[in-house]
Nucleic acid binder design. Structure first.
Lengths: 124, 124
DNA sequence: ATCGAAATGAAATTTCTTTTCATTTGATGG
DNA sequence: CCATCAAATGAAAAGAAATTTCATTTCGAT
């Protein structure tokens, strides 16, 4: 456990929803200025493999968020401005552990709802 | 309507599930060999905006598929080999048109199930 | 056929991510 | 407390995916 990792982990755990590696880098740098972006990528990769972070493939850069118990949520992605809001309710039937299709064993899921955020519906 | 677009549209409409721009390019080239990858990107973007294609952000390159009525489906993404299978059943409650969270208006959704495909569970 | 706007393709560029490699760090045992 | 050494780091370079630029071509309406 190095200072670099600690900085990344600290920032990520404070994230509620969907930060890009660059955003995490910018924030973690405040604590640890010599931190390289590469290390952020490597640490995030590590956390994903350990199940501590989730990776979100959305339009634009890959985003990450912590996988805290009891904080399962989905995402509302604005098609106009690209903003992302969490949606606490889970809208799907439990699928983890189930088997589908051609004997495909499910271990996780990801649901994104696309549409238009409040700002974009009613511009200031 | 140009020959290039026709080639891309023809290939895309034959796709059932999740092709990358490069794959579409390779196939469309068989009909129209001077077709550039750039035009494939541009045409796919156009089709997405017209609601004729759906864009899938998954690990790796962005994938595309036609949005044919009555063919709504989700994806089983193998975490081991990266293969993608369609899942015809829709597991979520209808959300199109509904409003969630901070007055977010939903127009579409995307569900991906992650896990391990038959091949990867029981290697040959 | 002719014209003009829209579309095209090649090349260059940008964005995001990963690899390489010399240097630094930190846990471990003396 | 310090020496050791594998693991981790960061800078630079490389690589993948997607976009922009711009001169040329194509389509379709005269």
């Amino acid at each position: 456990m190095t200072a670099s990792r600690r900085a990344v982990i600290q920032v990520l755990s404070a994230v509620q929803c969907a930060y890009s590696a660059e955003e995490i880098h910018r924030r973690a740098r405040r604590r640890h200025p010599r931190l390289g972006l590469v290390t952020v990528y490597r640490t995030l990769e590590l956390l994903v493999q350990q199940g501590l972070a989730r990776r979100l493939d959305l339009p634009g850069p890959t985003r990450y968020e912590p996988t805290e118990e009891g904080r399962h949520h989905h995402h509302l992605v604005c098609l106009s401005c690209g903003s992302i809001e969490p949606l606490q309710r889970c809208l799907i039937e439990p699928v983890e552990g189930a088997t589908f299709g051609r004997r495909f064993r499910v271990t996780g899921h990801r649901l994104e709802l696309f549409g238009y955020c409040h700002e974009c519906i009613a511009p200031a």
